[in-house]
């Protein structure tokens, strides 16, 4: 009985959320856009670590942003937003992928100084995640023996592995939004991201290891978003 109730809980949650969205006036908005920042990536930068593949300005300085917000009060919104930084390439014969994900629980207040124009002020606690992934291609003698018995030639197997690290942070930003239509706007923000990152205690297959020494304690950030909302 208890197990059945547990399995029904996600269904009930999603049903209520969907019903509330459809039959209420939820004042939801979604945004998609990009950001610019200038982190010191330490040992994740090819200038300081020759193992790392070459880094473009996009991988170093650009963020890809998306998120959604809910207006719960006449001058206030809460929501979830994410800014991701990607870097991919090759380390030896293996595929390399680095993702730094700034994940924010946003709280924003705003007002309209004039028609179509909005000034907003955002504070967001963050729980960020760094991921470094290597995908190696290699052949396995045992697989080759087994496959050979069926008449196949040898195959290459890809073996992915990733190291991850999570840390807390705080984002504070001031923004200006211009409404092209009542349901479409362009939003620019400027502010700071503060991170409590330490290179200790990265995780690789449950092993605790040392990671790259990034200096991302205090980062100025500029964002521009396209906002769609009802």
């Amino acid at each position: 009985m208890n197990h059945r109730l547990q399995s029904l809980t996600p269904f009930i949650f999603w049903f209520m959320l969907l019903s509330a969205s459809l039959f209420a006036q939820p004042k939801l908005s979604f945004h998609l856009g990009g950001g610019f920042y200038s982190p010191t990536l330490g040992m994740l930068d090819p200038d300081s670590n020759n193992v790392i593949p070459s880094l473009s300005a996009f991988s170093k300085n650009m963020l890809i942003d998306w998120g959604f917000k809910y207006q719960f009060y006449p001058n206030a919104r809460i929501g979830y937003a994410r800014s991701n930084s990607y870097h991919s390439g090759k380390v030896g014969d293996s595929g390399f992928l680095r993702i730094i994900s700034y994940r924010m629980l946003t709280f924003e207040t705003f007002y309209y100084p004039r028609k179509r124009m909005e000034l907003n002020f955002m504070l967001a606690p963050m729980y960020n995640k760094g991921t470094v992934k290597l995908t190696a291609e290699s052949s396995s003698g045992d697989w080759d023996t087994l496959l050979g018995s069926y008449g196949n030639s040898s195959v290459k197997l890809s073996t992915p592995g990733e190291m991850t690290k999570r840390w807390f942070g705080l984002a504070s930003m001031i923004g200006f939004r211009y409404y092209i239509f009542s349901w479409l706007a362009v939003d620019g923000k400027a502010g700071f991201i503060q991170n409590s990152y330490s290179e200790k205690k990265w995780k690789l297959e449950k092993e605790k290891i040392d990671g790259p020494t990034m200096n991302i304690k205090k980062l100025p950030v500029f964002n521009i978003h396209l906002v769609l909302g009802w």
Partner: peptide, 9 residues
């Protein structure tokens, strides 16, 4: 709401 904005500024 304005108090929160001043804190952020």
């Amino acid at each position: 709401t304005s108090g929160c904005a001043y804190c952020i500024m």
